Amino acid sequence: MSVLAVADLHKSFGGVRAVSGVSFAVAPGEMLALIGPNGAGKSTCFNMLNGQLRPDGGRIALDGQDITGLAPRRVWRRGVGRTFQITATFASMTVRENVQVALLSHHRRIWRFWQPTSALFAAEADALLDQVGMEAQADRAAGVLAYGDLKRLELAVALANAPRLLLMDEPTAGMAPAERVALMQLTRDLTRRQHIAVLFTEHDMDVVFGVADRILVLNRGELIAEGDAAAIRADARVRAVYLGSGATSGGH
């Protein structure tokens, strides 16, 4: 069974169709890339999956259960993690404390963090930091981390929810080329071992073609192509609307 199954998803803003009849599925351990030119509908699609936008039509199922239109927190509780283009961490907290906050929320004990119980889930936090290569920096303030390390911390925070599905919106934005490849290879290794389904948008086609198992291409809200890297590279329509245009940035 697919972890995520999307059927005939629609969303309009006024008279503009942002997403129109989009259907796809993501399997456990699979990395599925969602690409397309500016205005293709990628972020709108992501925000519906995450619960930030309610679809006008269609169905979103997680492990066979309908989650269409659920609020973001309820979607998160069902096992959907997300990373963002701009890192969302607590700068004044340590690296370990950032992960602890996520763990406390996952275990429904977030209210205790502000009491003298900061040792709660410390070992579990360190184990997650070790998975992303950040355990040695556990006691540093998040606000002093290099940008690439912040992205690794954000990944650890996302994994604290033990997600079945991980949504990554432009995960390598702002990173140096070598850091981009390293982060996405790390993500691929972790999610395959843990059988987590991953859906990500990305502007760097070297990253997309290097790590994605399959690629979806959106244009003007419609799914115009689906396949592996070779099939997408060879698709005449994709070259015409995206790859052949010289575009290097995925749109929203």
Rank of each mutant, 00 (worst) to 15 (best):
L104F: 02
L104M: 13
H106E: 15
H106V: 14
H106I: 13
H107W: 10
R108N: 13
R108G: 15
R108L: 14
R108Y: 01
R108Q: 14
R109A: 06
R109V: 14
I110W: 06
I110E: 12
W111N: 12
W111S: 15
W111C: 13
R112F: 10
R112M: 09
R112N: 07
R112I: 06
R112V: 09
F113V: 06
F113S: 07
F113K: 05
W114L: 10
W114Y: 15
W114P: 06
W114F: 15
W114T: 07
W114H: 09
Q115E: 07
Q115D: 13
Q115Y: 13
P116N: 07
P116L: 05
P116S: 03
P116A: 07
P116Q: 02
T117D: 14
T117H: 14
T117L: 09
T117Q: 14
S118G: 13
S118F: 01
S118I: 06
S118P: 06
A119C: 14
A119T: 15
A119L: 14
L120E: 15
L120P: 10
L120I: 06
F121L: 11
F121P: 01
F121T: 05
F121E: 15
A122N: 05
A122M: 04
A122K: 04
A123W: 08
A123F: 08
A123N: 12
A123G: 12
A123D: 14
E124P: 00
E124H: 09
A125K: 00
A125F: 05
D126G: 05
D126H: 03
L128M: 06
L128G: 05
L128N: 10
L128H: 11
L129P: 03
L129E: 06
D130K: 00
D130N: 13
D130I: 00
Q131F: 05
Q131E: 11
Q131C: 07
Q131T: 11
V132I: 07
V132F: 03
V132N: 03
G133E: 09
G133R: 08
M134S: 14
M134V: 08
M134P: 02
E135V: 09
E135I: 02
E135T: 02
E135Y: 00
E135D: 08
A136R: 09
A136G: 12
A136K: 05
A136P: 00
Q137L: 11
Q137A: 11
A138H: 11
A138D: 03
A138M: 00
A138C: 01
D139H: 05
D139V: 04
D139I: 01
R140D: 01
R140M: 08
A141M: 06
A141W: 07
A141Q: 11
A141C: 04
A142L: 08
A142T: 13
A142W: 02
A142G: 12
A142F: 05
A142R: 00
G143W: 01
G143T: 11
G143S: 03
V144D: 15
V144A: 10
V144T: 15
V144N: 06
L145A: 01
L145N: 05
L145E: 01
A146D: 07
A146F: 12
Y147C: 04
G148W: 01
G148E: 07
L150N: 13
L150R: 02
L150D: 06
